[in-house]
Amino acid sequence: MVDTNRPGTAANNVAGGPQCATPADPGRSRRSFVAVLAGSLAVLGPVTAGLVTFFSPLFRRRQSLQVRVALLSQVPDDGLPRAFPVIADRRDAWNHYAAQKIGSVYLIRQPGEQLPVAFTAKCPHAGCALGYSETDQKFTCPCHTSRFNLDGSRTHGDQEVAPRDMDTLPVALRPLDIPGAPQGGRARPRLDRGAASHSEGGGAASHSELPLGGQGTAPVGRWNVRRQQGLSSVATPQVNEVLVTFVDFQTGRQEKIPST
């Protein structure tokens, strides 16, 4: 049953194994080098191909969309926050989803103000969704219990778990084109709180029409609220939509808002 004569058995190894190679073999080191190189390349080739595909998300750019979130009439100027979903088309790999909720914003309009302020409802700490507590008028995070005031500042400043105040988003108003309505089709001035780089969306109006001394072209630091004098004197179109440039902020650290 047991074949003792086949090659490779212990007896044969003594004669045919590597011990047989003489030290004076001239091409040995070159052959060894090529062996290691060829072998490594044979393995590294597929690894590289895999890694390139694996890293593909890094090569894709993030987009910030200007999204309609509400009618201005849905945000009364009472200084209290109202939550609105941010609904936009979304792509997930091979799927296209029409009209998906991609986030949530709180809009607050101060008395007499025309433009609301928009806070993204994502906690700057670990990205949990901030809730609003009516009883004490605070935004609260359900994860690590950070709390924020109505103006987005942290209740306990740097003692709060969250590393920074709530992130604000650029807000703009756009008159709604209603077929048959009095202002139908006519371009209306659009009011921007934020940088000029966020000028897409709607296309019916442009910054050159702003009667506000070009305030729309001046970038406002980190989109923080800035009282715009004379805003309320601008004629209000009958139906205004509130547009928000939605930025999916990284948590934890401040970063520049990518332009649309």
Binding site: F55, P57, L58, Q250, T251, G252, R253
Partner: peptide
């Protein structure tokens, strides 16, 4: 989200783990 706060490569780590921005 916490991984994205890692120094230097946090954002990239998160993107790679998640396979995209979201």
């Amino acid at each position: 989200e916490l991984a994205s706060q890692a120094p230097w490569a946090g954002g990239a780590i998160k993107k790679l783990a998640v396979g995209g921005p979201t």
